[in-house]
Simulated scan of single mutants.
Amino acid sequence: MDETSADQGAVRLVHDDDRDRFAALEGETVVAVLAFEDEDEVRDLRSTVVAPDRSGRGIGSAIVRFALEDTRARGLKVRPTCWFVRGFIERHPEYADLLEDPGTTPSTT
Results as ranks from 00 to 15, higher is better:
2 D>K: 10
2 D>L: 01
4 T>S: 07
6 A>L: 14
6 A>E: 14
6 A>W: 03
7 D>V: 10
7 D>Q: 15
9 G>C: 06
9 G>K: 00
11 V>Y: 06
12 R>C: 01
13 L>R: 02
15 H>Y: 02
15 H>D: 13
15 H>F: 01
16 D>W: 05
16 D>H: 11
17 D>M: 06
19 R>P: 01
20 D>N: 15
20 D>W: 00
20 D>I: 02
20 D>A: 01
21 R>M: 00
22 F>Q: 03
23 A>I: 13
23 A>G: 12
24 A>T: 03
24 A>C: 08
26 E>K: 06
26 E>W: 02
27 G>I: 04
27 G>C: 06
27 G>V: 08
29 T>P: 00
30 V>T: 11
30 V>H: 00
32 A>M: 13
32 A>C: 12
33 V>N: 09
34 L>V: 03
35 A>C: 03
38 D>G: 01
38 D>V: 04
39 E>M: 05
39 E>A: 09
40 D>M: 10
41 E>H: 12
43 R>M: 09
46 R>C: 03
46 R>T: 07
47 S>H: 15
48 T>R: 09
50 V>C: 06
53 D>I: 10
53 D>G: 10
54 R>M: 07
56 G>P: 11
56 G>F: 12
57 R>C: 04
57 R>S: 08
57 R>H: 12
58 G>H: 04
60 G>L: 07
61 S>T: 08
62 A>R: 00
62 A>L: 02
63 I>K: 12
65 R>F: 03
65 R>P: 00
66 F>R: 07
66 F>N: 09
67 A>F: 10
69 E>G: 11
70 D>G: 06
71 T>Q: 05
73 A>M: 07
74 R>H: 15
74 R>A: 15
74 R>T: 05
74 R>W: 05
75 G>M: 07
75 G>W: 07
76 L>N: 00
76 L>C: 04
77 K>I: 01
77 K>R: 15
79 R>I: 00
79 R>E: 09
80 P>I: 10
81 T>C: 10
81 T>R: 12
81 T>D: 14
81 T>A: 15
82 C>V: 03
83 W>Y: 08
83 W>L: 06
85 V>E: 08
86 R>Y: 11
87 G>Y: 12
87 G>E: 13
87 G>F: 05
89 I>N: 01
89 I>E: 03
90 E>V: 15
90 E>H: 06
90 E>L: 14
91 R>G: 06
91 R>A: 15
91 R>H: 13
91 R>W: 02
92 H>Y: 06
93 P>V: 03
93 P>Y: 04
94 E>H: 09
94 E>F: 13
94 E>Y: 12
95 Y>N: 11
95 Y>Q: 06
95 Y>F: 15
96 A>G: 11
96 A>C: 02
